[in-house]
């Protein structure tokens, strides 16, 4: 098998500039069709969320009982006025789906931001300080991870009540143990690597080691994790909405729409169909993006995965 190992030439060691790295990322995107698709969809979804009022053909909250329960345009009785149909109160499905992007992305983004920050800090402390501090932090982390996530979230949501800020806080706090665990694992791994040991023996300060060696190596795994967790949060938010535990029913979130759709599933199936499609596409986007980021950001995997 040895013959298959390419000979390492000296050109492998040429200096990396930002342009070269960018070009490299571009090539990676070209090579990985899934990553390309995820990247494009991600941009589209973010743009949709930002420009929702501009894109949406109607006011997502405006009721129009005369136009209620209209099927999608291509079905009998549908009209291109409301391409994806209307719900039981005559609100435009397409506009509601577009505005739903905002709720999902807001929860996903801020939830991950809080969870990531909390988790990274506690994981760093646990991994770097070690000893009793590590034991205490990981003890708490393990307790939180022992409670099934969905049960945990449902219970906390039921206690705190329905509003967007609470939902973000719930996800931010309940999801932080995962970030803590991953961060700690990475810190331990990096600490034991040869280059940190040699930096320590060369007398580098704690701050220097943290900022020069550990943090740069944490960014890759954490960004990848964040992408997957964002997808998971969008899932769970929809699930909470579906159980009536997330944002108030007046807010056009995908889960709320799904809950209404469920009640009319057999008569007006499109009401439940579209939010599900939206959730699936968003989750697909984040998963493709996460898979691709893992390849790009983790140099250990980069060679083997191409």
């Amino acid at each position: 098998m040895t013959a298959a190992t390419p000979q390492v030439g000296f050109d492998e060691f040429e200096e990396q500039t930002w342009q070269k790295r960018l070009a490299y990322v571009g090539r990676l995107l070209q090579r990985d069709r899934g990553g390309m698709l995820g990247f494009i969809l991600f941009i589209l979804i973010v743009l949709t969320a930002i420009f929702a009022p501009v894109i949406a053909p109607h006011d997502p909250l405006k009721q129009n009982l005369r136009a209620a329960k209209q099927p999608p345009a291509w079905q009998e009785g549908g009209s291109w006025e409301q391409p994806l149909g209307t719900d039981t109160l005559g609100r435009d499905m397409l506009s509601r789906i577009i505005f739903g992007t905002r709720v999902s992305l807001t929860v996903g983004f801020f939830g991950v931001l809080i969870a990531g920050t909390l988790g990274m800090v506690s994981g760093l402390v646990a991994g770097y300080v070690g000893g009793r501090v590590d034991g205490a932090i990981m003890g708490v982390v393990n307790i939180f991870l022992a409670i099934p996530y969905l049960v945990f979230v449902v219970v906390v949501a039921a206690i705190l009540g329905r509003n967007l800020l609470n939902v973000i806080l719930i996800f931010g706090i309940t999801d932080s143990p995962i970030f803590a665990r991953v961060t700690r694992g990475e810190v331990l791994r990096i600490r034991e690597s040869g280059y940190v040991e040699s930096a320590v023996s060369a007398g580098a300060s704690t701050g220097r080691i943290l900022f020069d060696h550990i943090l740069p190596n944490l960014i890759g795994p954490l960004i990848t994790l964040a992408t997957f967790e964002m997808s998971a949060m969008i899932f769970y938010e929809a699930g909470l909405s579906f159980l009536g535990l997330s944002v108030p029913p007046s807010v056009p979130s995908w889960g709320n729409m799904l809950q209404v759709g469920r009640q009319y599933l057999t008569i007006y199936p499109w009401i439940a169909t579209w939010p599900g499609v939206a959730i699936a596409i968003t989750a697909l986007t984040f998963n493709l993006l996460g898979d691709w980021l893992r390849d790009v950001l983790d140099p250990r995997l980069r060679r083997s995965r191409k």
């Binding site: 997808s231 929809a238 799904l258 599900g276 959730i279 989750a283 998963n287």
Partner: peptide, 10 residues
């Protein structure tokens, strides 16, 4: 990983 089970159920 991308299809929510509550939607799949419906």
């Amino acid at each position: 990983q991308t299809i929510p089970n509550f939607w799949l159920a419906l």
